[in-house]
Design a binder for these strands. Structure first.
Lengths: 104, 104
DNA sequence: CCGCTAATTCGAGTTCCATGGAATTACCAT
DNA sequence: ATGGTAATTCCATGGAACTCGAATTAGCGG
């Protein structure tokens, strides 16, 4: 992972609103959430949320997929794990690939 | 870990210079490095470095200890691990406490 | 006490970021 | 095509962050 990308990702997460958004998506798991649902949970004006989402997407921490008129947002777990490993200086320690996958 | 603290720590790491500083300290291990040595490695003016260090210290990611006229800086490994766990939604998975502690 | 080195604080300029209302695009249903 | 909902882009405005030279403080050695 490149230093610059890591810095941009960390900066992206270093904002209260964006961090809330990202954590909400991490909790939501692989199914993700529509932008509208995110807006209700995080409680910010739509335009503001959109700006923040754009940034998270641009840095590769969030992915969007269109389903008709709604846009589904998902946390990019691989990117998150790469970022964590980077902070750790490459000490991998068997993180699971996705959201808290309990059991088997 | 509180959301606000996590955001401030992530923001602190989300700057190219500060990220370089922090990673240099992580690599340096428990012995840490004097500010002067850091300055040589990261190559920024002393005053600039000092501002960045202040921020990293203020957020709890770095610790300083005085040794005569020089200040030793160390990465705060517990804080780093707490931050990582926070991003992960509290999935702990046996990270080691410090720098790549090979063997025993 | 005086000088020396280490490091921080002061001060100022520039740039970048966050916010949110209004206008706009995208897509589907009828 | 028209209406309707989802979401983004446009635009303006405070405000905060980054940078770094100069001045300052902290602590030792002679």
């Amino acid at each position: 992972m490149e230093l610059e990308l890591a810095a941009r990702q960390l900066e992206a997460l270093g904002n209260l609103t964006r961090l809330k958004v990202f954590r909400t998506l991490v909790r939501a798991g692989h199914d993700g959430l529509p932008v509208g649902a995110l807006q209700q949970r995080v409680d910010v004006p739509a335009s503001t949320l959109s700006h923040h989402l754009r940034r998270l997407i641009h840095t590769g921490l969030v992915v969007q997929e269109r389903q008709a008129t709604t846009l589904i947002c998902r946390a990019a777990y691989p990117a998150m794990n790469a970022l964590i490993d980077f902070l750790d200086e490459g000490e991998h320690r068997g993180r699971s690939a996705g959201p808290a996958s309990m059991s088997t």
